[in-house]
Each structure stands twice: as C-alpha cells, then as structure tokens.
Amino acid sequence: MISPKQNKPETGGAPFTTVQEKDEELLAAESEAEARQTSMITDIWHRLKKHRLAMAGLIIISVLILTAVFASVIAPYSYRDQNLDNALLPPSRDHLFGTDQFGRDLFSRIIYGSRISIAVAFLPVIVSVGIGVLLGAISGYYGGWIDLLIMRLADIMFAFPSLLFAIAIIFAIGRGILSLFIALALVDWAGDARLIRGQVLSIRSKEYIEAARAIGMSDRRIILRHILPNCLAPIIVTVSMSIPGVILTEAALSFIGLGVQPPTPSWGAILNDGQRFIGNAPWMAFFPGAAIFLTVLAYNFLGDGLRDAMDPFLKN
C-alpha cells in the first residue's frame, strides 16, 4: 500500500510537470505499490497457512472442485437410472448415502450435484460482487449525481426482496440454468454496492487519497489502486457471505420448482426432494443438506481465514 507521506512532497514540489513526467511518477509509484502487493499476497499466504480452519475450508473446497470435475469417475452409479425396487434404502455399503424414492444412488447424485451447486455458487457471485464493488466504489468515490444515480438504482434493486426478484427474472427470461445464473447474479449486487460505498466514503476523506488526487492520479487508478485494496477486507467478507447466500437462494428456488430441470441433480433440488421424505428417509434430506452446510461452512472458514491473514495490512 502506498503511504501518502512518501508521495506528497514529490508531487507537491512539481506542480507544472508534463503529462509524461506525471505518468512516469505514477508508474514508479504504482510499480512500488505492485511490489508491495505481491509481498502482501505472499505474506497473506504465509499467515493463511497457519490458520487451521481456513486451510480446512480450502481443502474442502478443493476436494469439491475435484469432485465436480471428476464426477463421472467418482460416482459409482448413474445419477438418473431408476430402480424402483431399491427405493428409499438406508445408507449401506452398496449405497453410501442410501437411495431416493426412485432407487437412485444418493451418493452419485450428490457427486454430480456438486457440479451445478459449485457453478451456481461461483459464477453468479463473481458477477454479482463485481457489479457491486465497481458500482459501490464509483458511487462512494465520485459522490454527486453519479452516487445519487447508482444509489437510487441500488435502492430500487434493494427494494425488491431478492427471492421475489429472482423469480420474476426467471419468469421474464424463461427457465433454464442460464436464467438461474442471471437471476442469482442480478439479485445481490445492491447490498454489496452499499457496503463498499460506505467503506469508500470513509476512505475517501483520508489524506492519502487527497494526496493521490493532488498528484493528478486518474480516478480510475485511485479507485483501483488505493480505494479498492483498502476495501479488500469488506470485499472478502462480502464474497464469503454472498456464496452461502447464493447457494441458499438456489436451494430456495429449487424448493419452489425454479431450479434446474429434472432429472439433473442439484443439492438444492435433492434437499427439497428429501424434505418430503424426512419422516421416513431422513438421509435424503440429511446428505444434501450436509453437503450444502459443509460447502458453505468451508467458504466461511476460508473467508474468515483470509480476513485474519490480511489483518496487519488493514492497520491504516
């Protein structure tokens, strides 16, 4: 991170520098910043490695990703082949997680379901947090009418209960996995934007931002190089909080029948199927529920660990 105290005298002493000179100064300052950030990342990694929960989270997530990639190799059975004579078998050596009402192997369905659930959790979150952070930073940094416009847009978005809005989007653009992604990506950004804006508002008034502005740094660079890195902690908290939210929203959408189309398995869909059978086949709800819970927990552990690891860099 750039210490404003280092930069201020240099720029302050050259009020009439040419554009080229200015750029060179900036480049110098930024390469220094980049070097610091590289060392920051190594440092964070060193700290993260000591964080047991975060490492546990990281391992779980890695295993999940591998599972999703190699689902067809790992799964002992097909996710869709029915055998009604084997319906609702409790967990056993043959069927690790038991079977569902069609006699389908739950272990295999959950293995395959990790594909949908991970994709659903990742892609929309990246898009959603991306939109939120960008708009929040712009809004907080510029203030004025841009702030007004973005925040009003956020307010409008915010005024829609997320599930209701997601349903409306799915109805408007038709069902399918793509519209599920779009709906999940579009419902959450307003909250992120507000949070980031709040952070940016207090950072904006800090001296080093004034300083960076004074040396003529472009707004884009200030936002990207100074403001956002200072928002890293809340961004990470946001991401780690958005993923569970999205996973759970997906489960809720499946609950009301707007998730993936059968027989494609997703954990949300399996869980909601299992809910019906909780009285006599609790494993049907337990395992997908546990899969969701474990995944969400892993993301939370990792997010928390990242936050702790970054703590020293958030001092000023």
Partner: peptide
Amino acid sequence: MRSGRMEDEHLAFQE
C-alpha cells in the same frame, strides 16, 4: 409438468 404436482410419476415416465 407442474412443480410439486405428481412430479415422481413424470420422472418415472421419463425413465
């Protein structure tokens, strides 16, 4: 098919 209505039979027909 309608969500929540006779879903299991539909899936059985599909198979």
